[in-house]
Design a protein around this nucleic acid. Structure first.
Lengths: 333, 333
DNA sequence: CTGTTAGCGCTTTCAA
DNA sequence: TTGAAAGCGCTAACAG
């Protein structure tokens, strides 16, 4: 197979084949209501017959709409964001938009570079996992007038639109829940990323005093979860309840507890974060803070597409909330 | 923030600012070796000063290179492919390419539609998770001369380039391993996707007779793994060794076995597939078939980029192989 | 080393 | 309802 691209079939060919002008062919395919039904049918037939595929770069150059949206995540393997990406992609696809994926690697220089690259690609919108970092790219995005949706976090000063929830609130809610259960000896197992540390902060604030903490590099995984669990249980064997910054981390703590002969929840209570589907199928089932990542993706897609169509979404600032789901790992009191 | 895009800063502005012609500015930024160092410096300075970001749509229209690559996966939440996507994205990014992500949803009509859309976006290459389905889009891709890398599978008749391994071989290897251990009562827990079923086929072939099988919908998860485990252990309590089509499924089977009071591996041996990082941190640690998904991504990126540069990769058909990693879940004989 | 010319394929604007 | 003209912002090809 040769990599030389033969000259492709253009709208010109379709027009000739259908016996109409270039622009009529364009309209027949793009704005069928502005052309007679008969003509539309003839152009459609011609396009199908010769296998025409419109060049979206050319169209986008003139119309200034690339029908492309950028999504930036730290690393794609951070499972948290997968349902969001999945829902976003599905929603965009339905409207003929495609998703450009970028990985910042938790690095603001790379984030800035990626954003510039996305601006250069004339994306019609940007969805961020998290808040936009304070880089020079910010000004360019504003200058270019590109709609942005920040997600999975909340702030008083959003760049543009936002779909998220309060991580501080999550930490507090878990602390309240633990306190309501009457426990007194707490620990935290956390990834070292910004939002996880904010959840920890909320937890500590509400508990009222500092709490033994094991921090592992983000993204956390089962192995680092076991490690964090081991660290906490070694450092302070009297710990009775552990708040984990992800369900995966929590699974590691559960595993480590089991290996050490600790019963959950009798000897140790464990709470995760994320509300992943697997959390309900562990043994014991895992208490977690559920966040509707899929909804974040579809809401973000919805308000972004609205703005792409030139509308002004009635509510460009959506708090999807969260809820503590009590399961076996903290039950029984 | 308004969605009206003000007229953007173009190369024209840079040229004027630097006091050179348009094309010299273009070369200074794109092919610096064809322009005097002094001019390059001046143009660079001008571009930086006014915050110029090149319009890649415009450049791509003329040069017929969009610096964009499409990656098609069934669903992004199928974890198997994440390391591949991650490595691919990272490699592309280093060369200034971006990744367009598409989800086929295991549906060939959607796959065909997505491929057409990607062709229309003038992608410079396509990476498929799995083999290209036999759709009309195939002919168009060939006609457009777009390089394609099929991954995670193998065939005698690849469309273009390929980086994968034999699923039949995986099934056989696990059967050989089980047989070498001297076991005789087998079961299979599998997702219902094509490649998982081929692995099962290889397993059954080598075992020499049909084997109790629990099939769950792809993508499999911890819950469906527990379900499959329950189904197998109920249907045939004498089962002694289970081959699972993913590590996640295997984790479900391990969990179900534990809940039922079965010891692994004493009462039941379990083997997964994928070689995910978590498999080594379960308790018991999970025997699995390791596949280097990250390498698949980087090799695919490498040969694809080579072709984008007009080179002919010396080896456009790479078998990355696999290997059975023995761990506690099948140890002890 | 630098510049001029001519488009890439499509859609907007204006006119019929 | 249809068409002609005029570019979108950039780069390939050829001159100078």
């Amino acid at each position: 197979m040769s990599s030389i691209k033969q000259k492709s079939i253009t709208l010109h060919d379709v027009a000739r084949e259908a016996g109409v002008s270039l622009i009529t062919a364009s309209r027949a395919l793009g704005n069928p209501d502005r052309v007679s039904e008969k003509t539309v049918a003839r152009v459609q037939a011609a396009a199908d017959a010769i296998g025409y595929i419109p060049n979206l770069l050319a169209g986008g150059l003139k119309s200034r709409r690339s029908r492309t949206v950028a999504a930036l995540v730290p690393i794609i393997s951070v499972q948290q964001f997968l349902p969001t990406i999945e829902a976003l992609t599905a929603m965009l696809d339905r409207e003929g938009y495609q998703l450009l994926l970028g990985q910042t690697g938790y690095d603001r220089a790379r984030e800035a570079a990626l954003l510039n690259s996305m601006v250069g690609r004339q994306v019609d919108g940007i969805v961020m996992a998290g808040l936009l970092d304070d880089t020079p790219a910010k000004a360019r995005i504003r200058a270019a007038g590109i709609p942005v949706v920040e997600t999975w976090d909340i702030t008083d000063d959003p760049f543009d639109m936002l779909v998220g929830f309060s991580h501080l609130g999550v930490g507090r809610a878990v602390a309240d829940y633990f306190l309501a259960k009457g426990w007194t000896r707490f620990g935290v197992a956390t990834g070292d990323d910004k939002r996880a540390l904010i959840r920890r902060q909320g937890f500590v604030d509400r508990i009222g005093h500092d709490v033994p903490t094991a921090a592992v590099p983000a993204p956390s995984n089962l192995g680092s979860g076991r490690q964090a669990g081991a660290e906490l249980l070694t450092k302070d064997p009297s710990i009775r309840a552990i708040f984990c910054s992800s369900d995966t981390l929590a699974e590691g703590v559960l595993t480590e507890a089991r290996v050490r002969g600790l019963r959950v929840p009798e000897d140790l209570a464990v709470c995760g974060f994320g509300g992943t589907s697997f959390s309900g199928h562990l043994a014991p089932t895992l208490t977690t803070v559920h966040v509707d990542g899929s909804r974040i993706g579809s809401e973000a897609g919805r308000i972004l597409l609205a703005r792409c169509r030139g509308e002004t979404p009635e509510e460009p600032f959506i708090d999807v909330g969260f809820r503590v789901i009590e399961r076996e790992s903290t039950a029984g009191r």
